[in-house]
Amino acid sequence: MTLTFNRAAYANLLADVLPQPIRSQAEYDRVLGIIEASMNKEAVSSEEEQLIDLFVILVEKFESEHYPSQNRSTPHSRLLHLMDANDVQPADLVSIFGSSDRVLEVIDGKQSIDLNQAEKLGNRFNLPSKLFLA
């Protein structure tokens, strides 16, 4: 589903959150909070989706600079985090992956998430589908 992008609405969102390079743990936590808050919304506008994309880039840059020896966020780790944060059980994802065996393979990291599944996960968690793609 493609929504109309409203530049004025996006400008207002930018003014509200004032995105900037993440240089501290406090700013990192603030940005993660904004991303998580969007997950709890029933619907995300195209402007909010664009802002989330921007924040994901900032988070990934901060993580690569400050946590280089730790595993960076991956589609698999993002899915596990979202499942935990939203109390989602593997059985809740069968409709997305087609079978409980496939769900377990993805959760165990044995299978990657394909484009169709990423789109369904994006809809399920109210986030851009590209967060679930490598």
Rank of each mutant, 00 (worst) to 15 (best):
H81C: 09
P90L: 03
R78K: 13
L79Y: 06
F97K: 05
D87G: 12
S99E: 00
F97L: 07
M83Y: 00
I107P: 08
F97Y: 05
L93C: 05
S99R: 08
A91D: 00
V88F: 06
N86M: 09
D87Y: 13
H81E: 10
V106Q: 12
L80M: 08
D92K: 12
L80E: 03
R78E: 05
V106Y: 12
S100K: 14
L104Q: 15
E105I: 15
L82H: 02
V106C: 10
V94F: 04
E105C: 14
L82S: 00
S95H: 14
I107Y: 09
H81I: 13
I96Q: 10
V106W: 13
A91R: 05
P90Q: 07
D92N: 10
L80F: 00
M83V: 06
Q89T: 04
N86L: 07
L80P: 01
V88P: 00
D92A: 05
D87I: 15
P90W: 04
D84A: 09
G98H: 05
D101Q: 13
E105S: 15
D101S: 13
I96P: 05
L79V: 12
V103K: 12
E105K: 15
F97G: 03
V88H: 09
S100L: 11
S100Q: 11
V94E: 01
V88E: 04
Q89H: 05
N86Y: 02
L80Q: 08
S100V: 11
N86P: 01
S100P: 03
